[in-house]
């Protein structure tokens, strides 16, 4: 219980920090919302990591949701922001359900590359169809009403900040519940032993598909929020670089607990902001070094390190990256 308590304090402290910073320094609202969006998307990617699968194409779901928001908001400007977000999530779930049927047949590098390939097709289609998608210039989204209320820019951002924060906390709890449910533990079983899953009467593909759908919805939500806060969607929202950033944050934060996604996103955003301000020329190098340090010092990510340090961690997965499938591998 003490460990859970720590995470609660961490969550409350983090949330307060987001609110206070956002209200005290209005310029920081957007980066905070963006950071939270990254955290929500990474929750989805981390679910795949628990199954031992790394997707290099998950940003496509943010892209699908983002463009759904843009298309709808341009076609029906009177649509409420909340409806736009729901529609975006719905679209990403729909796409995830279909793409999932194909990708859950593959594992490891094939799973990762197939996701990447599909996301790149989407990226170039959106980039080329200028008449419909605005090409690489993207589409502008006018500020919609939120729950029927019209806001000025500052108010809109504040509401979005609070809403995103609440969504992040709620989803963090939801995802953590999922991780510890029968379905979530079976998902982690895909990493270590699919043969056993099948011999328990479970379909490993179905278990992975459930998780995939979950992750597509989460990334979709982040994309919808992202589109609203920026007031603009461009194909970059679904680029492979963005997918890579989600994976980067998942490694940085660790997948041992849902809060890892947000800790990772916070560090990622801070390093980016710091580097943009003080080391403009070498910000990628700074991110790279951060990742190297994390992999060497804390292979289970920030959350793994915290759990180990609190010494209250229940025995859990060792490294989410060091696969131990081989020693368990069975061939007829």
């Amino acid at each position: 219980m003490a460990r859970l308590f720590d995470i609660r304090i961490l969550t409350i402290a983090g949330s307060l920090l987001c609110l206070i910073l956002g209200l005290a320094f209005p310029w920081s609202k957007t980066p905070i919302i963006v950071g939270l969006c990254f955290g929500i998307a990474t929750l989805g990617v981390a679910a795949m990591v628990r199954a031992g699968q790394v997707s290099f194409g998950h940003a496509m779901y943010a892209c699908i949701a983002g463009y759904t928001v843009a298309f709808l908001a341009r076609a029906w400007p009177q649509l409420d922001g909340l409806l736009l977000i729901l529609a975006g999530v719905g679209a990403s779930l729909f796409a995830g359900a279909i793409v999932g049927v194909f990708v859950v047949r593959y594992r490891g590098i094939f799973f990762g590359m197939l996701n990447l390939a599909i996301s790149m097709v989407l990226y170039s289609v959106i980039g080329k169809f200028y008449a419909i998608t605005g090409g690489t210039d993207g589409l502008r989204i006018n500020r919609p009403t939120l729950l029927g209320i019209e806001f000025e820019r500052a108010g809109f951002e504040t509401v979005l900040l609070v809403g995103t924060l609440l969504a992040a906390i709620g989803l963090g709890i939801l995802v953590q519940r999922y991780f510890q449910s029968a379905s979530g533990e079976a998902l982690a079983g895909i990493k270590t032993n699919e043969t056993r899953l099948e011999y328990l009467g479970l379909s490993a593909r179905r278990v992975l598909w459930d998780g995939y759908l979950f992750s597509a919805g989460l990334v979709g939500l982040s994309g919808a929020l992202f589109a609203l806060v920026q007031g603009l969607v461009t194909p970059d929202i679904g680029s492979w670089l963005r997918s890579g950033e989600f994976v980067f944050i998942a490694i940085l934060g660790g997948s041992g607990h849902a809060i890892g996604a947000f800790l990772g996103a916070a560090v990622f955003e801070l390093v980016k902001l710091f580097a943009a301000a003080y080391m403009t020329g070498i910000w990628q190098m700074l991110l790279g070094i951060t990742l190297i340090v994390v992999i060497l010092v804390a292979p289970e990510g920030i959350v793994g390190l915290l759990m180990k340090k609190s010494a209250l961690a229940t025995p859990r997965r060792k490294s989410p990256w060091g696969t131990r499938r081989e020693e368990n591998k069975w061939t007829p």
Partner: peptide
Amino acid sequence: AARQGRLSFFKPL
């Protein structure tokens, strides 16, 4: 849990 068939998404294992 597998014996029971459908796996729960929210109830702790």
